[in-house]
């Protein structure tokens, strides 16, 4: 049951920002509503004004202009099925395919997902690993923030009340040398591990070395986090020798997280699972680097 609210449907970002500026805390941007309407039905949020941003054309863009631009109102489903995304950032499409369920993906948007900053967001973790930036628009202009700077904590972002999340930009990552693995019994994942390997000698060549490794861990902390120490251990390692270092890399990642006891499990268990799934994600990414899609399946886990 929703309480009455006023629905605004601006056609431009400027209009939307003006509304947000004018209405202040009384207004909330609204797109798919999969998170927002849920909180409103539970009575946890009762905004008098909703600013529907879906009519703002630029927010719905999915474009390739050097960097890939994913507009804030692009749905998970569009991302999942977009030939552009599949070609330029296949892992993004693959992760999108496993978000929640098909109904949520059909309606829920990338912008909504990121702006809510639910610590169990798959895409936030993935985007962090892919060095994505978000673009924010306000009456004062536009600014870009790295995903790490944007997501500040659970349900907390750097978006100012008069700002609108316009979208995400990321450098294409056509490499198959990447993986996202999530694990958990509950509706939302207990942990998510994103691994992206930059290789010298190009993609898919056996014997290539890891030039640039990125590991992000999500769900176990207040916000997704890069594991820089763990990443450093991978630099220069040959992809066919990844197995030699996965143990140390996993342990290093586990040492880099600070989980809390909650419904998803005890802190020590989650820490150990970070080690386990970092190892697994790395093995999958390394196999993919060698042009092999491993037939991997783990109970209660999704390998994207």
């Amino acid at each position: 049951m929703l309480r009455p609210f006023t629905l605004h449907r601006p056609e431009t970002a400027e209009e939307a920002c003006a509304l947000l500026a004018r209405l202040g805390e009384d207004a909330v941007p609204y797109a798919g509503g999969t998170e927002l309407l849920l909180l409103m039905k539970l009575g946890l949020l009762r905004p008098p004004h909703l600013v529907d941003v879906k009519r703002i054309r630029e927010l719905n863009e999915l474009a390739d202009g050097g960097r890939l631009t994913i507009g804030a109102t692009v749905t998970h489903r569009s991302l999942e099925r977009s030939p552009l995304v599949r070609a330029r950032c296949p892992l993004v499409a693959s992760v999108a395919r496993h978000v929640a369920n098909v109904r949520v993906r059909n309606v829920g948007t990338i912008g909504g997902n990121l702006a809510f900053a639910d610590p169990h967001s798959d895409l936030a973790t993935l985007f962090l690993a892919l060095d994505a930036h978000v673009e924010l628009v306000s009456p004062g202009g536009r600014r870009e923030l790295s995903l790490g700077d944007f997501v500040r904590g659970p349900w907390e972002t750097a978006r100012r009340p008069d700002e609108l999340l316009a979208g995400v930009r990321l450098a294409p990552w056509p490499s198959r040398a990447a993986a996202y693995v999530k694990f958990g019994v509950h509706e939302r994942p207990t942990l998510g591990i994103a691994v992206a390997l930059g290789l010298n000698g190009g993609d898919g060549r056996a014997g290539a070395r890891i030039q640039d490794a990125r590991i992000a861990v999500g769900c176990v902390g207040p916000r997704p986090a890069r594991m820089f120490t763990a990443e450093a251990r991978l630099r220069g390692v040959s992809v066919d020798r990844v197995d030699d270092v996965v143990g140390a890399v996993g342990d290093s990642a586990a040492a880099g997280v600070d989980p809390a006891d909650d419904l998803h499990g005890s802190a020590d268990y989650k820490r150990e699972m970070v080690a386990v799934f970092v190892r697994r994600a790395l093995r999958v990414a390394a196999a993919r680097a060698g042009g092999v899609e491993p037939a991997t399946s783990f109970p209660y886990a999704v390998v994207a």
Binding site: F183, M273, V276, F298, P299, Y300, A301
Partner: peptide, 11 residues
Amino acid sequence: VSVDEETGALR
């Protein structure tokens, strides 16, 4: 049943 010994997940 099978078990993922590293995670404890039963199938």
